[in-house]
Write a protein that binds this DNA or RNA. Structure first.
Length: 650
RNA sequence: GCUGACGUAGCUCAAUGGUAGAGCAGCUGAUUUGUAAUCAGCAGGUUAAGGGUUCGAGUCCCUUCGUCAGCUCCA
């Protein structure tokens, strides 16, 4: 082949010859004018690039258009640049930070010496529309480190970034119209490709995510290929707001957080208390069947205990201050509300000699612990200061670790997947900077968790540096209504506390051995888990969890006695029934039950009263009603509760 | 904790610096209803708390508390 020509492989496997130095744009043109117009970026040997870069010979390539999710990411990245272009036009002195694409959109960080006002954002959005209309091409150039430093000599934030780049890294600069930015790219061909965007909000963000450094002002935006996609996204945000557990919690009278009581402290109202109660009963049944033992330990303890456990020096900022008990304030008599249960469970383990035959010993407690979380982090039920942990600590031999974790993951799957049908993600979190114990301990611990995950054949992601300070962990994560990620279940290996408390068992060799310890929670905390369930079910809980399971609706006062009899029968059968005695129309009562997400309405009219039957209307089922004898209704309800069915059986 | 926005009846929201209002919920009465809102009346407020400016503050200023979004930190 002559050197003046190159060849690339297209997605369908066919080969295409191009002149040497041909770019992605040239390729698109060569394939067809339609594609040339639609082309946004190109995948070269798996790497997303601009269309303007020359193609290497023999590359496997794919032109990306608005059909491709990866192109959407590029579009959003370019949108961030268009945003910065607009900001620099309005505030020429603005310092610029980073501007990456994110899920559903993009952001860019600025420093204009003051925060942005809502009016600023409006003006910026208008200016940004001008920038996109101007259709500035994005041009890429590669420069030397010295050149880059010269070009950005007035941009201290960019200079800092440049000096952090590795020596061998290629430094590229992108220009769109008047705006020049240090950027790895890639970008769409021109700002005119950005048509459907919206700036959402501004908020402070620390430079490089470090709270010790200056705070920049971040502007968030969203961008899509079509107006329809953009509108859909805005609608999705509105819909998500309706699922918000704080909104539904109020509507269904599940819980409150009150200024008089304190932020981050959940007050469970009767309806919410049912959720709490059922979940406790559910998980306790499961773990008792699997060899766990329930314990109860105090809410306060001598501070000394947390000194010994090593928590206090690292965790003091998250603990409520000490309180004095007895005389004076010597360490002997200072008490703390507990932020975790492990030291107490350890003392139960240590209260007698343990044989290798006794292990594993599994101590479980759904306990209230209190953590003084920073005020800005609190969020409804999902981030609180008073936590009901479904905690357990397992004391075992090193050779039992993998099997135990294997079995814990089974419980996780049973609860999260099988019972609630939840989508969740597994993370393996490894050693953080701030940690207890030696690297050798961490090596062993991390390996043990990983092999259990592998043996179960589960997909997981590495979360490097995300571990607790006392050991690595497997975290189960889920998203809330508006897409934020939270941690639920957690399984943590701990070689540190057994060391500190000198936990031992007597082995078959009649010699003392160091005990290994596992911390685990399945729900995580009842607060967070319930908050998550509220959003997951949008308040329409499965029957076994529903605060009110049946509302009995007499059509008129004439059927009140018959309705009361049905209500009593249901209650005797253990069904949470409520009798709607109000002097309202049937339509009104049905509407009210629907808006309260009651699973079943049992209508009792003249016909039902005479036949000792009920006309059952399921939640959200419209007027598809089923008439059946009361006894049969009870039977079906009991079955649905007993099987914890996610689907109504009637 | 930091940056910004916000805080009015139980809930959702109105009110140029000039008499604090509506809908829903609640209560009372009438209505007795067959599958998503019957009608009428009544009651409900130190406008988060405290201070200041002003003839006059829900509205402007300050402090505190709280909420929301984001950052940081975490179950």
């Amino acid at each position: 082949m002559p050197s003046s020509e190159i060849q690339v492989v297209l997605p369908d496997g066919s080969k295409k010859a191009l002149p040497a130095g041909a770019t992605g744009a040239d390729l698109a043109r060569a394939v067809g004018p339609g594609l040339a117009k639609a082309a946004l970026a190109i995948r070269v040997n798996g790497e997303i690039r601009d269309l303007q870069r020359p193609l290497p010979d023999g590359a496997t390539v794919a032109i990306l258009t608005n059909k491709d999710p990866q192109a959407l990411e590029v579009l959003r990245h370019s949108s961030a640049h268009a945003l910065a272009t607009a900001v620099r036009q309005i505030f020429p002195q603005a310092q610029i930070g980073f501007g990456p694409p994110i899920e559903d959109g993009f952001y860019y960080d600025f420093d204009i010496g003051r925060p942005f006002t809502p009016e600023d954002i409006e003006a910026i959005e208008k200016k940004m529309a001008e920038v996109t209309k101007a259709d500035y091409p994005f041009t890429r150039e590669e420069v030397s480190r010295a050149e880059a430093k010269k070009r950005f000599r007035d941009d201290p934030l960019k200079l800092e970034r440049i000096s952090d780049l590795a020596d061998n890294e290629i430094i590229s600069i992108y220009t769109d119209g008047p705006f020049v930015d240090l950027c790895r790219g890639p970008h769409v061909p021109s700002t005119g490709k950005i048509q459907h965007f919206k700036l959402l909000h501004a908020a402070g963000a620390y430079w490089r995510g470090d709270e010790r450094r200056q705070m920049l002002q971040r502007i968030y935006g969203t961008a899509w290929f079509t107006k329809q996609d953009l509108d859909q996204y805005i609608t999705r945000l509105e819909e998500a707001r309706k699922r918000d557990h704080r909104v539904i919690g109020k509507q269904l009278d599940l819980f409150s957080i009150q200024e008089d009581i304190g932020p981050g402290l959940i007050v469970w109202h009767p309806n919410g208390a049912i959720l709490n109660f059922e979940l406790r009963r559910f998980i306790e049944d499961i773990i008792l069947q699997r060899g766990y033992q329930l314990v109860y330990t105090p809410n306060v303890t001598r501070e000394q205990l947390f000194l010994r456990s090593g928590h206090l020096p690292l965790y003091a900022a998250n603990q409520f201050p000490a309180m004095a008990a007895g005389e004076g304030e010597s360490e002997e008599v200072r008490y703390r509300v507990k932020p975790m249960n492990c030291p107490m469970h350890i003392l139960i383990y240590a209260s007698q000699q343990r044989s290798y035959r006794d292990l594993p010993i599994r101590l479980a407690e759904i306990a209230n612990v209190y953590r003084n979380e920073r005020s800005g982090t609190l969020h409804g039920m999902l981030r609180v200061r008073g936590l009901s942990m479904d905690d357990a600590h397992i004391f075992l031999r090193e050779d039992q670790i993998e099997e135990e974790i294997f079995n814990m993951l089974d419980i996780v799957e049973l609860v999260m997947g099988k019972t609630f049908g939840l989508q969740y993600r597994l993370d393996l979190a490894t050693r953080p900077d701030k940690k207890l114990g030696t690297d050798a301990m961490w090596d062993v611990a991390e390996k043990a968790l990983e092999s259990a995950l592998k043996r179960r054949g589960l997909q997981y992601k590495m979360d490097v540096g995300g571990g607790a300070f006392y050991g690595p962990k497997i975290d189960i994560k889920f998203n809330d209504a508006i897409g934020r990620e939270w941690q639920g279940a957690t399984i943590q290996l701990d070689y540190e506390l057994p060391e500190r408390f000198k936990l031992e068992y007597t082995g078959a060799d009649n010699k003392p051995h160091r005990t290994v310890m596992l911390h685990r929670a399945i729900f995580g905390t009842l607060e967070r888990f319930v908050g998550f369930l509220i959003e997951h079910f949008a308040g329409a809980f499965p029957l076994w969890l529903s605060p009110t399971q049946v509302r009995v609706l007499p059509i008129a006062d004439g059927q009140m006695d018959a309705a009361r009899a049905v209500h009593e029968t249901l209650r005797q059968a253990g069904i949470r029934s409520h009798l709607d005695e109000r002097s309202e129309t049937l339509n009104y009562k049905i509407r009210d039950a629907e808006t309260h997400k009651i699973p079943y309405m049992a209508v009792v009219g003249q016909r039902e009263a005479e036949a000792k039957s009920v006309a059952v209307r399921g939640r959200g089922a419209g007027n598809k009603q089923v008439v059946m004898p009361v006894a049969e209704f009870v039977q079906k309800l009991k079955e649905e509760v007993h099987t914890r069915s996610l689907k109504p059986l009637i």
